[in-house]
Amino acid sequence: MFKRVLFLTFLFFSILALAIDPVKIFMVPKFTGAPYFVATEKGARVAVNELKSLGLVVDFFYTGPSVANTEEQIRIISSLIEQKPDALIVSPNDAEALSSILKKARQNGIKVVTYDADVADPEARDVFVNQATFMSVGETLVELVAEGVGPEARIAIISADPNARNQNAWIDAMKKYIQEKYPKMKILTIKYGYDRPAESLQAAQDIINAYYPNIDAIVAPTSVALPMAAEAVLKAGLKGKIFVTGLATPNDVRRYVKEGVIKKFALWSPKDLGYLALYVANALARNMVFEIDGERFVAGGKLGLYKIQKEVEGSKNVIVLGPPLIFDINNIDQFDF
C-alpha cells in the first residue's frame, strides 16, 4: 500500500514539476517481423497512450532490420542517433558488436534502454529491462525436460546466434542447473539457426539425422527456432519420441501444442516487456527516476513500481520483469501474442 501511495504521489508531482514537452523514443528490435517483437511493440504503444492521457506525450517510432542482421541494426541505430531522439530502446542482435554504437548514443545525450537482450558492456546503456533472470529461465527449461522425459535426458539445443548474449546466458544457466540437480542429464550439441526459419529448420533436421534415436529432447530458447524444431520432429514422424520445448510466443507454436508435438513451453509476456521498457525509457528521458534510501525506482504504469537493481547476475542497473510463464494445451488459448 505504501509503495502504491508513493508511486501515485510521485507521479502527480512529477507531472506538475516537469516541462510537459514531448519526448522522442525509438524502439529497435532484433528484427521487426517476428511476432515476439511485434508484441513488444504493441505493449510499448499501450504505454505511449497511457502516458499521453497523463499529459506526457511520447513521439514513438518502431524500426529495425526486417531479418536478424547485426550490421543493418548498427546502421539503423547510427541513422537514428543523427535524429537526436531522447531515448532508444534496443534489443541487440550481437552483445559485443552493438556496444560501440550504443556508447555513441549515450555520448550524444541519448538515454539507452536494452530489452530482451543486453549488450556485453553495461556502460553502453543506462538500464537493461530483463524479461526474467537468466538462472530462472535456464532452470525452467531444464525442469520442463526433466518432467517430460526424465532426469537422464539427452538434449540438443538450437540457439539463435553464437553471440546472442541472452541465449548464451540461458544455456550457461541450464548447464549449471543440470550439473547441480540432474548430473546424468546431458547436452549433446548446440546448433544455431540465426533467428531465421529456414536455418532453424535445417539445424533441427541436422540434429535428428545425426543423433536420433540417441536423443530425447530438443530445446530451442528462441521464438523462431522452437516452431521449426517442432516442424522438423513432425516431418520426421517422431512426435512423442523427441520431446520439444523452449521459448516462444503462444501464437508461434499454438498449432504444435494442439497437435501434441510440444507439451509445454515457457516465455513471459512480450507485450508487458515492451510496455515496461517504454515506461523506463520515458522515465529516463524525463528524469523521472527517483531514489529512496539509496535505491532507484521507476514507475511501470499498471505493472507497478520497479527497482533498478544495482547488480543482477553480474550485470549492473537491471530491471527484471518477472518469472517465466508456463504454457500448455490447457492455457494456451488464454493468450494472444
Rank of each mutant, 00 (worst) to 15 (best):
F2G: 09
L11Y: 07
L11C: 09
I20E: 14
I20C: 12
D21F: 11
P22I: 11
I25L: 09
F26Q: 06
K30T: 05
F31H: 13
T32Y: 04
Y36H: 11
T40W: 07
E41C: 11
K42P: 01
V46N: 06
V48W: 03
S53P: 02
V58T: 12
F60D: 07
F60V: 08
F60M: 12
F61D: 13
G64Y: 07
N69F: 00
N69C: 06
T70H: 03
E72D: 09
L80P: 07
K84A: 11
I89L: 10
D94E: 06
D94S: 12
A95L: 05
L98T: 02
S99L: 05
A105G: 05
G109Y: 10
I110Y: 04
I110K: 05
K111H: 15
V113H: 05
A117K: 03
D118W: 12
P122D: 13
E123Y: 09
R125Q: 09
F128A: 03
Q131L: 11
S136M: 13
G138Q: 01
G138V: 04
L141P: 04
G148S: 05
V149C: 09
A156F: 00
A156Y: 00
S159C: 01
P162W: 01
A164F: 14
N168S: 13
W170E: 11
P183E: 13
I190L: 08
I190Y: 00
Y192D: 00
D195G: 05
R196F: 08
A198V: 10
L201V: 01
I218Y: 04
I218C: 00
A220P: 02
S223E: 10
A225F: 01
L226N: 03
L226I: 03
A232D: 00
K235P: 03
G237N: 08
G240H: 06
I242A: 02
F243D: 06
F243C: 05
P250S: 14
R255Q: 14
Y256G: 00
Y256F: 15
V257E: 01
V257T: 07
V261W: 02
K263V: 13
L267P: 03
W268Y: 11
W268L: 04
W268H: 04
S269W: 07
D272Q: 15
Y275G: 01
A277M: 02
A277I: 01
L278K: 08
V280K: 06
A281I: 08
N282E: 14
L284N: 01
A285L: 12
M288H: 09
E291F: 05
I292N: 03
I292M: 10
R296K: 15
R296D: 03
K302A: 15
L305P: 03
G314S: 11
S315F: 15
P323N: 11
I332W: 05
D333P: 02
F337W: 15
